[in-house]
Each structure stands twice: as structure tokens, then as C-alpha cells.
Amino acid sequence: MKNGELNKISTPLMQLNFMDNSFFAYLQQLELLVFFSGYPFLYLLIGSLKSIKFVNPEFRKDINQLLPYTYAFAGVIFIGFELKNLYPDFSFNNISQRIQEPFWYVWGILSLLFWIPRINKIPTLSFLHSLFFLYLFVRIFKKFTSEMNTDHSFQANNMRVYTISLLLYLTILFVFYFLSFLVKRFLEKRSH
């Protein structure tokens, strides 16, 4: 079924204008939200550790430095996910058909820039970059809340996506911190 045909189906979901009447566009927004919408919360949470005195300053510093890498790694997973969806047809035609909103995709792919040391030295940039996805999330949530207030299923689904994103970032951060801890210990032992 082509998008045009799908758009003719009259469902409450597709009557919402914010997704250009495209169900696929909505699904792709959800994909982006899974990979990026949880980052602002994590960033602010880690940032607030500064005010907690009993938190080890070294831990604070290490974990703060890992934040942009976490964000960049989520970008890698996002690209891997999209490549998996495109497989085995990587033709331009297929890519253009699948990607409904190229700008969102490009913005998501830009998260890979935070692998570059010069850029990831400034964690605030990653926060600012991720605010776009937070805005996207708030916009979707607001739309569903105002236009479909009789059914909470969409909000529940959006919040589930948001929760998965938060858990994804917490997991990545934990793994990164654990790995960096091991590397640090290994290097210290070697230096002794």
C-alpha cells in the first residue's frame, strides 16, 4: 500500500495534521524519540550531581565527560537500526521512500559529530542538539493530549517510548563508565 492510499484511510490518528497525515512519518518520529528524547533528562540529571556534595568529584567529572559519547553512541545505534530496516535494498529510491522527514534524520545523524574530540569537549552542545528531539516529543504529546483526550493509549505509548529512551541512555552511560573504569584501572596497573 502506498502512502497516498494509506492517507485516505480515515482514522483519528491520521486526521492529525502535525504528521502531515502520514502514519509512517509518525512511526519514524517514534523511532527518533526512542534514540534521542531521553538524553536531555540524563544530561540535566548528571549536571545536577554537581550540587550533591557527597558525590565524588572525580566520578562527576568522568561521567560528565562521557555524556557526549553516550549521545554519539545512541546515534550509532540509530543508524544501525535504520540500515537494518533498509537492508537489503540500499538504493536511493528505497531510502527516499522510507525517510519521510529527511531533516529529522539528518539531525539525528549529526549526533555522530560528538565522536569528534573537539566537539565533545563541550557537553552543552550535545544537550542543545538533543533539545530538538525533546521539542518533538513535547509537540507530539501535546497534540495527542489536546486532540485525542478520550483515549490515553497514544500518550501511554509516547511515554513508553520516552521511558525506553531514558533506560537506553542510562544503560549506555553505565556501560561506558564501567568500561572507562576498567581501562583506567588497567592503565594504572601498567604504569605501576
Partner: peptide, 20 residues
């Protein structure tokens, strides 16, 4: 930083309650 975090916590909390 705290203000932003508070806003985000409030919004998330509202989201979870509204989506119940």
C-alpha cells in the same frame, strides 16, 4: 540546570500521569 531538570521532571511526571 536545576530549573531545567525540575521542569523536565514535572513534565515527565505529568506525562506519566496523563498517559495512565
Amino acid at each position: 540546570n536545576h530549573s531545567l531538570l525540575l521542569v523536565l521532571i514535572l513534565f515527565s511526571g505529568y506525562g506519566y500521569i496523563a498517559s495512565c
